[in-house]
Design a binder for these strands. Structure first.
Lengths: 177, 177
DNA sequence: CCAACCATGTAAGTTGTTACATGATTAA
DNA sequence: TTAATCATGTAACAACTTACATGGTTGG
């Protein structure tokens, strides 16, 4: 059966921006969508092969040996639209930090405090990276079409990171850590 | 090889509260940890069998035929502490709503607006359920030990849901939806 | 008596990661 | 020349979901 996951959605989506090799697709997902999406090579290459077979993307000659660029077809754009309009499938939640917090009495206060420190550092790092991305957005040649959407996803990251910092602060206080 | 995932951590954790059947463990995870954790039966039963084999939990007679309660052993508590003190393994991000937002120009404004509506409704529903859980926490006989930790996880849910509502509001505005 | 819930377990399938293997190209 | 990056692909494994199969118990 055809791959039912959202990997297809992400790959087709990236190819609407410009034709790309598998390597570039993965790089784009990591660098641009990285704060809310992830794909590994082991997903991308088989997925591309399927998409070609279904006529949703087509391979064009690449810059170098053993490389091919993939371009989304008209059918691919149509399919992408359908995929995007399907209801969002929420991934089952698995928050390791909250699991540790919930069972906090089974660990040393020191260890829980360390976990909170890590969460804080990670949130700060994310906020820092978002500031850098804001410049990238302004420089993007496709700003008029993509920019506002890109900014919206970035804003989600900021709000999440800020909520995370608020939570760490409050939790340190309420648990006396 | 032994199951390396955090299912063991969650199961052992639940059993620190009181001995339980597999069914009760699943129920407890769904009802109490549901806003940040998830396990299916297909994970829990094999995991319990492994834990028994390793001496981390032991089966005691259950209330009825074909049922057994599982009790965490001293070794199990020790193992749980070690597991909790391991660094939090962040699950790779896959946010379907942000994926749709990023590729928002490839879908109709109407469809994106619908996705935002769903996100808003879901966040509101979560806030409602947290209010109900707050009463449960106050009623919990183990409040003094567990309650503060439980409340902290709930607060995380509230902050996340509120951040989500803020984002939906801002995004509707910035994208004119 | 019957619906809802309690209870256990397995098998098949899907999804995804990681490690490995291979080699071309480019910039220092 | 050599390290980094570009590029592709597969095989093994790990994790997880879902559907199925089975039957006991309780409350209305």
């Amino acid at each position: 059966m055809a791959r039912a996951s959202q990997t297809r959605t992400a790959v087709l989506g990236v190819l609407t921006i410009e034709p790309a090799t598998g390597y570039e697709i993965r790089k784009g997902i990591t660098e641009v969508l990285g704060h809310f999406w992830h794909e590994s090579f082991g997903q991308i290459y088989p997925c591309l092969a399927e998409l070609v077979e279904e006529g949703l993307v087509e391979a064009v000659a690449g810059d170098r040996a053993r490389s091919s660029r993939f371009r989304i077809t008209r059918a691919g754009r149509q399919r992408l639209q359908e995929l995007l309009e399907e209801p969002v499938a929420a991934q089952p939640p698995r928050n390791g930090l909250l699991l540790r917090t919930f069972f906090g009495q089974a660990m040393t206060p020191r260890a829980l405090a360390t976990a909170l420190d890590s969460a804080e550092q990670e949130a700060r790092a994310r906020l820092g990276s978002y500031a850098a991305i804001r410049s990238d957005i302004a420089d993007d040649p496709g700003y008029a079409e993509h920019g506002r959407f890109w900014e919206a996803t970035l804003r989600a990251g900021e709000l999440t990171a800020e909520a995370s910092l608020t939570w760490v602060r409050e939790t340190r206080e309420s648990l006396g850590l």
